[in-house]
């Protein structure tokens, strides 16, 4: 566990740096759910939204690059029934839109700018997720 503390802190630093540079360079919040939603719902490349597609391309490339450089194996996606995965995806997508953000938008950027609204949202979704895991574990 302590062996993972350093990469976790370094990774967190990179995520925070990404959020700060997005605002410093482009004046945008690095909220992934918002970026993805706009990228797929308004994919007009000639309308000033192209940066979102590039952000997502960077997200995938950065992940790939780390695994190439560290030679760390790809993590396995957990075994689960397809219906659970579909339900989880639907809830995450719907909830992120309804609540106005996800772990990056509320959790990192929102709390990072000391927004009470984002602190409340983050606390609520962490608690809801903990309760969900508790119920799932109990049901096994």
């Amino acid at each position: 566990m302590s062996g993972m503390a350093l990469p976790a802190l370094a990774g967190g630093l990179l995520i925070g740096l990404s959020a700060v540079l997005m605002m410093a360079w482009l004046g945008r919040v690095a909220g992934i759910s918002g970026i993805v939603w706009r990228a797929v719902s308004q994919p007009s490349l000639n309308f000033g939204g192209a940066w979102r597609i590039f952000f997502i391309a960077g997200l995938l490339s950065g992940t790939w690059l780390v695994h190439q450089l560290t030679e760390r194996a790809f993590p396995e996606s957990p075994e689960s029934s397809t219906w659970i995965i579909v339900l989880a995806g639907l809830l995450v997508g719907f909830g992120a839109r309804l609540g106005g953000g996800c772990t990056s938008g509320h959790g990192v950027c929102g709390i990072g700018r000391l927004s009470l609204r984002s602190l409340v949202a983050t606390s609520v979704f962490v608690l809801a997720a903990m309760l969900t895991v508790f119920i799932m574990m109990a049901g096994r």
Binding site: P7, A10, G11, G12, L13, L14, I15, G16, L17, S18, A19, L21, M22, W25, L26, A30, I32, W51, R52, F54, F55, I56, A57, G58, L59, L60, S61, G62, T63, W64, L65, V66, H67, T70, R72, S104
Partner: peptide, 14 residues
């Protein structure tokens, strides 16, 4: 944006 996305992805994987 590509650079920022790259930093974010690298951070998540690391």
């Amino acid at each position: 944006a590509l650079i920022c996305g790259g930093l974010f992805g690298a951070g998540l994987a690391l």
